[in-house]
Simulated assay, not measured.
Amino acid sequence: MGLFTVTQARAELARLRPVLDELVVMRADAAELAAAMAPGGTPTPLGGLPEWKAAAARLDELMSEVQRTGADLKSLAPLLVDFPSDLDGVPVLLCWLEGEVELGWYHRVDLGFAGRRRLP
């Protein structure tokens, strides 16, 4: 996949929001089901092993859907999505973190999340 402009990345993020919202729900369901199945775990009304397997499969589908856009799902908890881009000739990743209202950050590819800055 190619590079995203800021406008393209924001549009793709908007299109992905329902997928990302479902990822958050499935992540929580899978965690609750896994905890319930652990020795001494508290039962959950969500179910057991079959429901955990279904949640894990759906998580895989949703993560693949994000990756197919050309974006990079860097983290599941919290969700962290990077969009490859270029700012003034410098390779960057436009960076969205779960809880943020919009795509408003970037970091140089070589610096990673620690080098995160607000978009100009």
Rank of each mutant, 00 (worst) to 15 (best):
G41S: 13
V19G: 07
V92A: 07
R117A: 07
E98Q: 15
L49W: 14
D82V: 07
E100R: 15
L87V: 13
D72W: 13
P18N: 04
A114I: 05
A55W: 00
D110T: 11
V90Y: 02
M26Q: 08
T7D: 14
S64T: 14
G112N: 04
P91K: 15
L103H: 05
L119P: 03
V81C: 11
G48E: 04
P84I: 09
G40L: 06
P84S: 12
D82P: 02
A31E: 09
A114N: 05
A56E: 11
L97V: 15
D82C: 08
L103W: 01
L103G: 09
G112E: 08
T69L: 07
R108I: 04
A34D: 14
L111Y: 06
L111K: 09
M26D: 02
A55F: 02
D72E: 14
D21E: 15
L13C: 03
P78F: 15
R17N: 04
V92H: 09
A56M: 10
R10H: 02
G48I: 00
K74P: 10
K53C: 03
A35R: 08
D86G: 03
T7A: 15
P43R: 00
W52Y: 08
K74T: 06
G70Q: 13
A55R: 01
D88P: 12
L103Y: 03
V25C: 02
T7Y: 09
L23T: 04
G70T: 12
P45H: 00
T69F: 08
L111G: 00
E22P: 10
A34R: 12
R58G: 01
A28Q: 15
F83H: 09
L97R: 14
A54N: 01
Q8A: 15
L3V: 14
E12I: 05
W96Y: 04
G70D: 13
R17S: 06
R27N: 12
S64R: 11
E51S: 07
M26P: 00
V6L: 14
L76S: 14
R17Y: 02
V101D: 04
D29Q: 09
L13D: 00
D72Y: 14
